[in-house]
Structure formats: C-alpha cells, structure tokens
C-alpha cells in the first residue's frame, strides 16, 4: 500500500510550494482583495448612511421651507391688514380734516357776514342820523314860514330817503 505512507519527497516539495504560495498570496492577493472588499463594504455603508442623512436633511429642509412659507404668508396678511387700517385711518382723517376745514370756513364766512352786516347797520345808522340831522336842519329852516308846507316837506324828504 504505497499510497498511504507519506513520501518525504512529496512532503518536502509540498512544504516549499505551499509555503511560497501562501506567502505570495498573502502579500500580493489576499491583502489587496480583503482590503478592497472591506473598503467597498465601508463605502456602501457610508453611501447608505449619507443617503439616510440626505433624506433627513431633505425632510428638515421641507419642514423649514413650509415654516418660511407660513411665516411669509402671515407677514403678507399682516402687511395687508396694516395697509387697510392705514387707508381707513387716512380716509377718516382726511374726512375729519375736511369737515373741520369747511366748518371753519363756514364759521369765518358767518363771522364776516355778521361783521359786514354790523358795519352796514352802523353805516345806515350813521347815514340815518346824518339825514335826520339834515332833515332836521331843513325842517328847522323852513318851519317858521309855513306849518303846512313844513309837513309836506318832511313827508317828501322821508319819501326820498327810501331807506332800504
């Protein structure tokens, strides 16, 4: 049974060949292959993690955008509301002012009219007084001559005066 007794020549060569093979493979094959595999696994893990974080980031951004939009909408509403109140205030202010102005003008006009009227009345009074004096003068001049004529004269003067 030759083949169950190990042959030292085969053992020797096997040691040499297998030893060299393991050494070369370890150095030039397994190290790069295992490193490559590990690097790829890490790369995949990293890619997955970064995809996950990107998704998170997207979600966060979307939420942020929504918030910003909401804020902008609220601000717009606010501005609009403010503008409306401002408009209303301006309008009412203007109205008030106009009313006051017109009242003031009216007052002034009334005042003026009153003044004019008073002036006119005073004037009339003065004229009446002057006329009265004049008439009295004329009457006094003529009274002594004829009483009837005197009467007629007064009447005619009064008629002439035509006081409005």
């Amino acid at each position: 049974m030759g083949f169950v007794t190990p042959d030292y020549g085969t053992i020797f060569w096997m040691c040499v060949v297998f030893g060299i093979t393991v050494w070369i493979l370890k150095r030039f094959a397994w190290k790069p292959i295992l490193n490559g595999l590990k690097a790829r696994e890490q790369q995949i893990a990293r890619a997955l993690a970064s995809a996950e974080s990107a998704r998170e980031e997207m979600k966060r951004l979307a939420a942020h955008n929504e918030a910003v939009l909401q804020e902008a909408r609220a601000e717009k509403e606010n501005i609009l509301k403010e503008a409306i109140t401002l408009k209303n205030k301006l309008l009412s202010d203007a109205k008030e002012q106009a009313a006051m102005e017109s009242e003031h003008l009216l007052e002034m006009a009334k005042h003026k009219i009153e003044e004019e009227k008073n002036a006119a009345i005073n004037d009339i009074r003065q004229q009446v007084a002057e006329l009265s004096v004049e008439i009295a003068e004329k009457v006094l001049r003529r009274e002594l001559s004829n009483p009837t004529a005197q009467q007629q004269l007064v009447d005619s003067i009064v008629k002439d005066m035509n006081i409005s």
């Binding site: 042959d7 020549g9 060569w13 070369i24 397994w30």
Partner: peptide
C-alpha cells in the same frame, strides 16, 4: 529522492495557476 514526481509537478502547476489567478484578481480589485 527529491524528484519532481507527477504529484509535485501537478502541485507546482496548480500553485502557479492559483498565484496567477489571485494576483490578477487582486489587481482587478484595485
């Protein structure tokens, strides 16, 4: 007797093939 017998020759042949195959594979990997 340290002859290169049939077994040793086959051994050397397959060792060469294995070394070539896997060093090539390592290069591909890189």
């Amino acid at each position: 007797d340290f002859s290169i017998t049939k077994t040793v020759a086959g051994l050397i042949f397959s060792a060469i093939i294995i070394i070539l195959l896997f060093t090539w594979l390592a290069r591909r990997m890189q």
